[in-house]
Design a binder for these strands. Structure first.
Lengths: 135, 135
DNA sequence: TATAGAACCTGTAGTAACTATAGGTTCAAG
DNA sequence: CTTGAACCTATAGTTACTACAGGTTCTATA
């Protein structure tokens, strides 16, 4: 029996992205250049599928491609420790918390403005939202 | 006495942005083309400063330039009602809440992984974070 | 086996909201 | 009058893709 292989489209579908995205990850050095068919089509194996899914999961968690590059280097070079990985994850967690805090403040500001605005037919020059922002 | 005027640099400093950003807003149609000096330098007045600050405050609140264009059209054309403005602000508030929810979920996922990782010197192949993402 | 059309190939340009650079001109202070 | 800061225009770079264009290959059916 044969080792299971995939076309780029199959790989992309598994990882819930587009073929162009895989091309892009290859150009960016996140995905390796895989073997090709006679006609030049990319042929992927299971490990490629794993790697692409890893990248996509990290993206969903808000890691930048640069952070992912770092995480992948940990995987690719086995002389790294768990602590290094943890460091990247903690940094990302902090960054996310910071964004959450910013957005909460932002939403409070918006809601305060919205609540001060009573009517639908007030003319603009009495609008407390515009006032708050423009005055 | 003279009406107070500003150079582009002074305007930008007031609104906490760079001159290039003001150029960009002009090209994007958010800021008007102001009068020029003999030599071609832009000359701004108080209303320009107000407008630029408005744009910047909206940006801080997470409005896109497109949304700001809409808000500015409400200001520029007086036949709009307060209700329309409120609509834009409410939409933005909802969008922000959605982002907050996403980020909270994301942070929980990150923290769960981080907490499962005990040691600093574990080799990578036993790292629960890599495991969770790569397996 | 011929062929249609889906999927693939490369390369370039576009997206948002700026930022940075180059190469030149004008303004304001001393 | 000179110097250097600030201005001018135009173009390219940033992030993480997405969307073409124009061509080739693969695969399933007749």
């Amino acid at each position: 029996m044969q080792i299971s292989t995939f076309s780029i489209g199959q790989l992309a579908r598994q990882a819930n992205c587009k073929t162009e995205t895989v091309h892009y990850y290859e150009k960016s050095g996140l995905m390796p250049e895989p073997p090709r068919s006679e006609g030049g089509h990319r042929i992927y194996a299971l490990e490629h599928a794993k790697r692409l899914k890893f990248i996509r999961r990290c993206r969903e968690l808000g890691f930048s491609l640069d952070q992912i590059r770092t995480l992948l280097s940990f995987i690719d070079e086995p002389n790294h420790s768990c602590g290094e990985v943890k460091g990247v994850a903690i940094a990302q967690s902090r960054e996310v918390q910071g964004k959450i805090d910013d957005l909460i403040r932002l939403k409070q500001a918006l809601d305060t403005m919205v609540n001060q605005c009573k009517g639908t037919n007030y003319p603009i020059d009495k609008c407390p939202i515009i006032d708050a922002l423009y005055a």
